[in-house]
Amino acid sequence: MRKYAFGPLIIAIVLFLGLLFVPNAWIGHLISNKKVEKDATTLSPLMFQGDYVQSRMLKDDKYFPIYGSSELSRFDPFHPSNYFEANPQGFTPFLVGRGGTQSLVQFMNFAAHADQIKGKKLVFIISPQWFHKGGIDSVHFDPNYSMLQAYDLAFNKDIDPRLKREAIRRLLKFDVVKRDYMLSAMYRSEISHPTGPTKWKDNAIKPLAYMNWKLLEKKDLYYSLYGGYKHKLYKDPKLVKGKSWGELKQLATQYGEKRAKGNPFDVTDSFYKKKVLPIQHRMRNHNRHATYANSIEYKDFQMILDLLKEKGAEPIFVTIPVNGKWYDYTGFPKEGRDVFYKKIKKQVEAEGFPIVDLSGHEYDPYFLKDTMHISWKGWVYVDKAMEQHWKTKNPRVD
């Protein structure tokens, strides 16, 4: 007769239960301030799809969070993380986002920390590329979706119910949310019964969903113990330390010029050769019917504005320009870009928030390092806006 050894299985179950029932406070004590500081530049999905590290960051007055997308990983000596390390101003930039973290993803993140952002100064970088007609799609939403933050929203009683229902309706458009039976049932119940669940199925699901929520919190704590991917930061403190803004613009121009090597779009030469040249002949006038005038992204972005205003945050918004030379080459109409700059500026200012509109730099050489990502000279303008916002409520950047 075949014998089965249950010892390893029993040990595994005991270890699992032991890890499961370790008090959260005990795990939190194992996460050092140095670990949180390290996460300021890791751009780790484990960090921004979780709650704990960001919560620790928001509690610490030294951090100045920057929320954005893929431009945050474009490190060079002028990047805020490098510039303010060389030129301390009393804060440390903390980067939150990566490619695809558009308005809806960032809204979920803000909602998860809504009780911590009152009076908190932060930067929110807006990219025109988000504002195509369909807004964020599943290809970009799914990898950045946080199940924990989705459950946070389900149990959140501290934000405007109208805003919560609007966000839930939007989230239910995505399969990754609809496939989660417990979450989607709670979401649909919230829409159908704003004052609370009334059906027996809702009452049965809610405690199970609550247990799952707490397991996700525990998982986030354990993930927070480990470091994220370490990026190459391309630091050069001697280049940027103690320089005037005018000198920094000149140095950034020289820095970018060396790396562009005279290509027609003023982008990194390696990017031009690998990404642009192979498709350049096909892209001439390819986008002649494109526009950023109409997009569901404007509504997603409005939810962020509404939440930050409701909770008394102190954000500064930065509008990134597109690469004018490349967009002209592809035929993307100038009016289709300008309408975005005007709409987003009006939208932000209508809520009383300051905005740094960098749209006038579409044709400014070495403002971007490729066709859409700010870098080099562009970061100098962001650095200046951040320094002024940290000191005042109404920054102005020339």
Rank of each mutant, 00 (worst) to 15 (best):
G100C: 11
Y226L: 13
T330E: 03
T330H: 00
S73D: 11
Q250M: 11
H113D: 01
D175M: 02
I320V: 15
G28T: 10
Y4W: 08
G90M: 02
I66D: 01
P161T: 06
G134N: 06
W376N: 03
D152G: 05
N33S: 15
F48I: 08
D51Q: 10
F78E: 03
W200R: 11
A25L: 14
L305R: 05
Y52A: 02
I191W: 07
M211A: 13
N144R: 14
E314V: 04
A252Y: 12
M303E: 08
Q102S: 11
I66K: 00
L9D: 05
D39T: 09
L215F: 10
K201N: 14
W213G: 02
N263S: 07
D364Q: 05
L163Q: 11
K243Y: 01
K334S: 04
D300I: 01
V96A: 01
E190T: 15
K218C: 03
F16G: 02
A204Y: 15
Y187L: 08
L233N: 06
I344H: 05
R162E: 14
F107L: 06
D306C: 05
H79W: 12
T291W: 06
G119H: 04
I136M: 08
G331H: 00
S270V: 10
K261R: 15
Y223H: 13
A12G: 11
K309I: 02
K35P: 06
D266C: 07
K342W: 01
S295H: 06
G324V: 00
T195P: 09
K3I: 13
K261E: 13
K391P: 12
